[in-house]
Design a protein around this nucleic acid. Structure first.
Lengths: 150, 150
DNA sequence: ATAAATAATTTGACCTTCAAATTAGAACCA
DNA sequence: TGGTTCTAATTTGAAGGTCAAATTATTTAT
């Protein structure tokens, strides 16, 4: 079979599984009540300095209204802290609580495991090839979507 | 920077973009009113012989109730045909209409373009490396999800 | 001071999803 | 045969996510 065809197949399979895997990676014993959606918001807020709602919404590609609702739930469950900015009182700054940071770290670990699984049987040259290929894919998607990657 | 870290970044970016890209790839001039969700159902039904609801639902990883609703919309808009089986009158067989097949083919073309974008600047050896890496990733996901790939 | 712009929230509508209840038909078997 | 059980699909009701538009509060510009 053509290598192009095999690549297509493996990519299709990957994409098909991404959602359900993320879900399972997120829902472990300790963090039962976290949806994939919650996880994406937590990732977008990140462990850096507090971010305003508009910036996080933009990063996620949703409206601020949608984000408000998601953040409501995360605040209620103690994963996110919400403070009104002193400099500009229209602005709301969100950041991860200790509990939120734990979840973030846990998810990071999943990503690390994933990368480890991919590269553990590749030598240095092969890793370089993989990176090149993924960048091509990324460029293709960026063009198609018109979005800039962050 | 570590190559592992760069690979992680590029993979995260990819996954983040997959949904919005699929959406845009699907919604062209001719096929405005098709969601990503519709597209996944159309893909799962496929161009082969008619399939029953349970099989398609399993392939998609949703309940048959959910699939019923999705298929209602696709039938109403003329992309899918729904026939009750003669051998077993409990069974409903779904298949793509001509219009549905056109959409399927259109989406196939998108996949081909995507692969072309990835491999066009790789030589044969590099393609082999990429395939190996993607298989590792696939294996990792298969294990994590417990699902068998189809 | 007043008007315009900006940040976030609220509201209302729509869609997707699931679990559970329901309907209809098939399979078993005594 | 008749009755029980199983199976396939649909329907229903609740929950969650999404958006656009309206609203509230605050800042910036004139």
């Amino acid at each position: 079979m053509e290598i192009e065809q095999r690549l297509n197949e493996v990519l299709v399979k990957l994409f098909r599984l991404v959602n359900s895997i993320e879900e399972q990676a997120v829902k472990t014993e300790e963090y039962k009540n976290i949806t994939t959606n919650d996880m994406h918001v937590i990732e977008a807020i990140g462990i850096g300095s507090p971010k305003n709602m508009t910036a996080v919404a933009k990063r996620l590609g949703v409206t601020t209204g949608t984000l408000t609702i998601a953040v409501n739930g995360l605040v209620k469950r103690g994963f996110v802290e919400r403070v009104r900015s002193e400099e500009d009182r229209r602005v709301v700054l969100v950041s991860l609580s200790e509990k939120g940071k734990e979840v973030f770290a846990h998810h990071q670990k999943f990503h690390e495991e994933m990368i480890e699984a991919v590269v553990s049987r590749l030598d240095e040259g092969e890793k370089g090839v993989l990176e090149k290929a993924l960048k091509n894919l990324n460029d293709f998607f960026s063009e198609k979507s018109g979005k800039r990657l962050r």
